[in-house]
């Protein structure tokens, strides 16, 4: 049997909206993307997903278009949009690292990983750097806990990560090599006796 949808229609809170200023091409494309969806059919999230799939986020200027399609007000729509953490309203950064916030990762040291990612990439969790080059995204546990603690990048899972691995990964993303450890003294078996004093030039180390 095909679907019966029932219940209150959204028409009561619907007011026709004036055409909105904005990128005409973008709005036309969005209209096309959500053309086959209907307002009373549990399909708003589908609309969000499709737009996000196409653009990486839901551009703010598309909200009136979606509202018109779903016969509701931009305010109602923004309320829904704002509620879901996986729907974003800012463009994603060029390089996004997804950090798993789950408990298995936490118990295995994910906070340390978060700290070094934030420190090296130069942005807080759930933010992008000012130039939009790097972004950190907090994601929820999806049950790949045998890799805890893990991060994901472009759909690839990286784990279990040690803090040192993470630092190397982040430096690689930044395009900086790890500074070579400067040996304390040339020929001596290290660890024994007094370390030799290093010259300042050697201390700079060689960036790979």
């Amino acid at each position: 049997m095909t679907k019966i949808t029932a219940g209150p229609s959204h028409t009561s809170r619907y007011t026709a909206l004036d055409p909105v200023p904005g990128d005409v091409e973008l709005l036309a494309k969005v209209r096309e993307l959500i053309d086959d969806l209907s307002p009373d059919n549990a399909e708003l999230l589908t609309a969000f997903h499709r737009i996000q799939q196409a653009y990486g986020y839901v551009p703010r200027e598309t909200i009136p278009v979606i509202a018109t399609k779903f016969r509701t007000t931009p305010a109602m729509l923004y309320g829904a949009l704002d509620f879901y953490s996986e729907i974003r309203t800012v463009p994603p950064a060029e390089t996004v690292v997804e950090w798993c916030s789950g408990p298995a990762c936490l118990l295995k040291g994910s906070m340390n990983i978060r700290r070094v990612l934030e420190s090296i990439l130069g942005c807080e969790m759930s933010q992008n750097t000012d130039d939009g080059a790097f972004g950190l995204r907090l994601v929820q546990c999806d049950g790949t806990c045998h890799l805890a603690p893990l991060v994901r990048r472009e759909g690839r899972y990286i784990g279990p990560l040690s803090v040192s691995d993470t630092i190397r990964l982040a430096r690689e993303l930044k395009g900086e090599g790890e500074p070579e450890p400067v040996p304390e003294s040339g020929g001596l078996k290290a660890g024994e006796g007094q370390p030799a004093v290093e010259s300042a030039a050697e201390q700079e180390g060689g960036g790979a």
């Binding site: 095909t2 549990a42 399909e43 969000f48 704002d82 879901y84 953490s85 729907i87």
Partner: peptide, 29 residues
């Protein structure tokens, strides 16, 4: 009888049954 899959969008309280229903109804969950 027929079925349909609805894909959520990242909200824990949508696992509460009335929140889930609100989410299916195109609103805040």
């Amino acid at each position: 009888f027929d079925l349909e899959v609805v894909r959520g969008a990242g909200s824990y309280v949508c696992g509460e049954e009335t929140g889930l229903i609100a989410s299916i109804e195109d609103a805040r969950g």
